[in-house]
Amino acid sequence: KKIKIDLKKGPEGLGFTVVTRDSSIHGPGPIFVKNILPKGAAIKDGRLQSGDRILEVNGRDVTGRTQEELVAMLRSTKQGETASLVIAR
């Protein structure tokens, strides 16, 4: 099931960490939400869960991207702006 979640970045950030699983010589594996932090946009919104697979960030497919690339995409969202995620659960 795909779910679109918009998180408005506040002073505590987006409020979640990510982890890559099953990376191989063929490229990075899928990226999942690792933890929801006690402060930040994710816990206020309440929909994002540990174990959700991140498919898109701000309309860009993240398949084949590294964890570092995904984190850079999320960090490029400025405070007060919205990060738009599509996740699979």
Rank of each mutant, 00 (worst) to 15 (best):
K9I: 15
L14R: 00
K4D: 08
A83C: 15
G27W: 10
T20K: 11
L55W: 04
H26N: 10
H26T: 13
S24Y: 03
G64W: 07
D61H: 07
E56F: 10
V71L: 11
S24T: 06
G64M: 08
V62G: 03
P30M: 05
G46W: 02
I54M: 07
G27V: 10
E81Q: 15
T77H: 14
S76P: 07
Q49E: 12
L48P: 01
Q67L: 03
G10C: 15
P38S: 12
Q49A: 13
V71T: 15
V33N: 01
G29F: 10
L48E: 00
D22Y: 03
Q79E: 12
L70R: 02
G64S: 09
N35I: 10
V19H: 15
L7V: 07
G15M: 00
N58R: 04
A41Y: 03
I54G: 00
R89S: 04
K39Y: 07
S84D: 13
L48I: 04
L74R: 02
T63M: 08
G29K: 05
I5E: 00
K78D: 08
K2F: 08
P38Q: 07
I25H: 11
T17A: 04
A72H: 13
Q79G: 12
S24Q: 14
A41M: 13
I25C: 07
I31Y: 14
H26M: 11
V18R: 01
T63F: 05
I87V: 09
R60S: 06
G10P: 11
V62W: 05
Q79P: 09
L37W: 03
S76N: 12
I36N: 02
E69G: 08
R60F: 12
T20L: 08
D6M: 13
A72F: 03
R89Y: 01
A72R: 10
N35R: 03
V57N: 01
P28D: 08
G29I: 11
I5R: 00
I25S: 12
T77A: 12
T66L: 05
D22K: 04
K78R: 04
G59Y: 12
D6P: 08
I31T: 10
T17V: 05
G59Q: 10
I54Q: 00
K9V: 15
K1M: 02
Q49T: 14
L48H: 00
K8M: 12
L55T: 06
D6K: 11
R60D: 11
A72K: 11
S84V: 05
R47F: 04
V57M: 14
G40P: 01
D61R: 07
T63G: 06
S50I: 11
D61F: 10
G40A: 03
T20V: 10
A41T: 10
G59V: 02
S84Y: 06
I36W: 00
S76V: 13
E69T: 06
I25A: 07
L85P: 02
